[in-house]
């Protein structure tokens, strides 16, 4: 178990380091922050002074080492635009995004998993085909199209719901629906195929031959096995909790991290972009770790090694 954990953590650390390095290099190469922040009419002297004060005049590798050094001390840099710690700029947006994404994740799971199970149980029926059609539509229609469509109907035409902002729970409904349907569609498809695979396994036949009632065959024998692949997909969705809403937040003017990222990128606010990317990477890596733990819990074959190994 320890060996397993150490290997996982090392891999997680390397992944984060890779993201940090990549983001750093790309950001430095993609445009001059001084010009973006101060504007094109600024004098060369002012630009030079700006660069000097932010350390942008040093070679990239020096800047990078300095950045890494700061990271290990828990300093994430200053936002060039707001002149305060980038971490503060980012962290105040996190709850706003989670307030949107957690209900969306719940919707994905509560809608997608049962729909997938139902489709598998009623394979090739009209219900199955209907569920699969909706699920394809769910993830084939881009978020911004669905978002604008919903705004047009429910906000503009009917006037039932607000079209943008985050003031009340009513503001939540449309963006959560937009975010939830795509994920629910993906999950439904995955759950269906996992469930179909499991329902064809000999142990399901054994359960029926034992006289286990069908509902219990599904709940106790099939679902725990089908959950193993489905958890992977849910884990991936958890990983994108933080960053998955860039488009949707823009459409609904939701003041979350996605919006913050768009603004920071267009401003070349390096420190803020880097903190957001770091957070995204950390989130991905953590959810991967959680998935691995869940595997062990769900599947005794990964938790307990086989006693003897045969080999021909």
């Amino acid at each position: 178990m320890l060996r397993f954990l150490v290997a996982k953590l090392t891999r997680a650390f390397l992944a984060i380091l890779f993201v940090v390095t990549f983001a750093f290099v790309v950001l430095r190469l993609s445009g001059d922050p001084a010009l973006m922040i101060l504007g094109p009419e600024t004098t060369p002297e002012a630009l030079a002074a700006f660069r000097k004060s932010w350390g942008l005049d040093a070679p990239v590798w020096q800047q990078f080492l300095g950045y890494l050094g700061n990271l290990t001390e828990g300093r994430f840099g200053q936002s060039m635009r707001d002149a305060r710690p980038a971490i503060d700029v980012v962290m105040e947006r996190v709850p706003i995004t989670l307030w949107l994404m957690l209900p969306a994740l719940a919707l994905k799971i509560l809608l997608g998993v049962p729909a997938g199970v139902l489709a598998a149980l009623k394979r090739n029926s009209t219900l199955d085909r209907a569920i699969m059609t909706f699920s394809v539509m769910g993830y084939a229609v881009p978020n911004f199209v669905l978002g604008i469509f919903l705004i047009l109907i429910f906000a503009v035409q009917l006037g039932w719901l607000p079209s943008s902002g985050s003031a009340t729970w009513a503001h939540l409904i449309l963006p959560v629906i937009v975010l939830g349907t795509a994920g629910a569609g993906i999950l439904a498809r995955f759950t269906r195929s996992a469930m179909l695979e499991v329902l064809g396994q000999p142990y399901v036949r054994t359960a029926v031959a034992k006289g286990v009632p069908w509902w219990r065959v599904v709940n106790w024998h099939a679902l725990p096995n089908a959950a193993i692949p489905t958890v992977t997909v849910i884990g991936f969705m958890m990983g994108s909790l933080i960053a998955g809403a860039v488009v949707t937040e823009s459409v609904f003017a939701w003041p979350g991290l996605g919006r913050a990222l768009v603004v920071a990128v267009s401003n070349r606010d390096l420190a803020v972009v880097q903190v957001i990317l770091l957070l995204v990477a950390a989130c991905m890596v953590t959810s991967n770790l959680i998935v691995d733990m869940l595997y062990g819990w769900l599947d005794p074959r990964t938790r307990i090694p086989k006693a003897g190994v045969g080999g021909g």
């Binding site: 000999p202 142990y203 036949r205 096995n225 599947d299 005794p300 074959r301």
Partner: peptide
Amino acid sequence: SSLNPVHS
């Protein structure tokens, strides 16, 4: 494969 892998 006739026994359920996730139950003892």
